[in-house]
Simulated scan of single mutants.
Amino acid sequence: MTDMLTHTSEQDAFPTTNNRIRLAVREVRETAFRALYAAGVSSGEAAAAADTVTAMQLHARTGIDTLLETLDRLDSTSSPAGVSLSRNSAVDIVDHSPRSGLLSGPLAVDLALSQSRPVLLSRIDDHEAVDWYALRAASRSGTTLWLVTLDDRGRHTSATVVTAAGDMHRDVAVTTALEPDVTIHDEYGGGTLVLTAPHATDASRPVHTAVERETRYRHAVSYGVFVDTAKWSRAYALGRRFLVPEANHD
């Protein structure tokens, strides 16, 4: 495998074990991109998803798990991956086949930012991958985003907030002022609602901050990122189904 890091450091917080492998950050991203592209995802979607997978693996250790789950869904259907967009008077609705926050999240977030209008990811209630894409988008745009989980009856249950400062807050209570914006009819079957709105200054402490993420990224660039060996072997094999030179998507 290319770019695999084999050196160790006493400063590394995660000691090497028999069931984990240390990799360069770039290799995680490249393998995610190639595996998704080989599975039929467009170049643009695969690039955005690969960035999200890398961030999730680096900061939450869930990136490769999310990648493999998405690839399983893509491989289990004979229909090509695709997305549909509809709207009513209150909200835009994004529906992706197969259902995947990793693939449909970027479209929903970009729509919410570009038009300041709520966007519903239909029937996607696990929005961790969407959160990580939204965090980067919020930082770049200087806008705070709410990602609100809706149950099957359209009632909000919890929310993640990502701020323009690059902080992520989880399990945030929906404020009274937002109630009209997050009331969705149950015909849509719940999901994740993405919308722009201010964040209360007295909110809970963030679970991720821009400073913490920058520190971890710099450490990973120097010393690598750990991935479960068996899961990485599978992801790497799926990526080899279609090898793509880096220059084709930079």
Rank of each mutant, 00 (worst) to 15 (best):
T16A: 07
T54W: 11
E69Y: 08
A35M: 12
A35N: 10
Y236M: 05
L36C: 06
S79N: 11
S114P: 12
W232D: 10
V28L: 14
L243H: 13
R22N: 13
G44I: 13
T144R: 03
D228L: 06
V91Q: 05
G142V: 08
G40N: 04
L103F: 05
I184L: 06
R87Y: 08
I64G: 04
L113T: 11
S116M: 08
I93G: 02
R99K: 13
E214D: 15
A197S: 10
A24E: 00
H185Q: 08
E187A: 09
R234P: 04
G142Y: 12
D167I: 00
R73H: 06
S79L: 09
N88R: 05
D167V: 00
L23A: 07
D3Q: 14
V162M: 05
D152F: 07
D250S: 14
L193H: 00
V225L: 00
P118Q: 04
F14I: 06
T209V: 00
A200N: 14
P15Y: 13
G154T: 09
K231P: 02
A108C: 03
T52Y: 12
S141T: 15
D65E: 07
V182K: 05
R99Q: 11
D75V: 00
V53M: 02
L121H: 05
Y133F: 10
A46D: 03
E69P: 01
V221F: 06
V130C: 10
G224A: 07
R26S: 06
L58W: 03
T31N: 11
M4H: 15
D250P: 07
L67V: 13
D92M: 09
D12H: 12
A13Y: 15
A173K: 04
W232K: 12
R20A: 00
A210W: 06
E179D: 14
V91H: 06
V41C: 04
L5E: 04
R205W: 07
A138Y: 09
R155A: 00
T163Y: 05
E10M: 12
A134K: 03
T192K: 01
D151F: 03
L103A: 01
R216F: 01
R241T: 05
A38C: 11
A165Y: 07
I21W: 09
G82F: 15
E45L: 01
N19G: 02
F226C: 04
R136Q: 01
S158G: 02
A48Q: 07
A134W: 09
D152I: 15
V182T: 03
A210K: 10
T54R: 04
L103M: 05
A46V: 10
S42H: 08
R136P: 00
L85Y: 02
H199C: 11
V174F: 05
Q115K: 07
